[in-house]
């Protein structure tokens, strides 16, 4: 089962839309709730990162019998130092974004902790591709 969602940078009103749609689909498929919880955390953080840090992006969701594959491709500034970005607490979010309670620097670590496989491909001044896989077991 494949879905695609588009995400606009800076538009926090729609942040979490893809996550809630995917959550519904997984529920309907009868996927274990502990797995759904992990998918929701990982996808929400990845989705919000496009809104908070990039210009626009596309989310490709592929649900197979063995698990879910999420690919988030954005046009944006890219991530110059992935190791730094993966550090808990590191954030370049603007003051306005922080005031809303985003920008805790916990998103990428949360994605890593909730996924079975997680890769970041990024080109500075071009964009970032996140691949997240979670097995249904």
């Amino acid at each position: 089962m494949k879905f695609q969602y588009s995400v606009e940078g800076g538009d926090f009103t729609m942040a979490g839309h893809a996550s809630s749609q995917v959550k519904k689909s997984l529920k309907q498929l009868g996927i274990d709730s502990s797995i759904i919880k992990r998918v929701v955390v990982a996808l929400y953080e990845a989705e919000v990162n496009i809104v908070a840090h990039a210009y626009r992006g596309v989310i490709d969701v592929d649900i197979e019998s063995a698990g879910i594959k999420l690919k988030l491709t954005d046009e944006g500034p890219g991530i110059p130092d992935i190791e730094k970005a993966m550090t808990k607490g590191f954030s370049t979010a603007s003051a306005a974004v922080r005031e809303m309670g985003f920008g805790a620097g916990m998103g990428l670590p949360n994605i890593r902790d909730n996924s079975d496989r997680f890769t970041i491909d990024t080109v500075v001044n071009k964009g970032t591709v996140l691949s997240i896989e979670i097995d249904f077991k």
Binding site: E45, A104, N110
Partner: peptide
């Protein structure tokens, strides 16, 4: 918590 990622990561159902 006032941090959304904190709640996202660690609040329980």
């Amino acid at each position: 918590s006032d941090l959304l990622s904190d709640v996202m990561g660690f609040a329980k159902e």
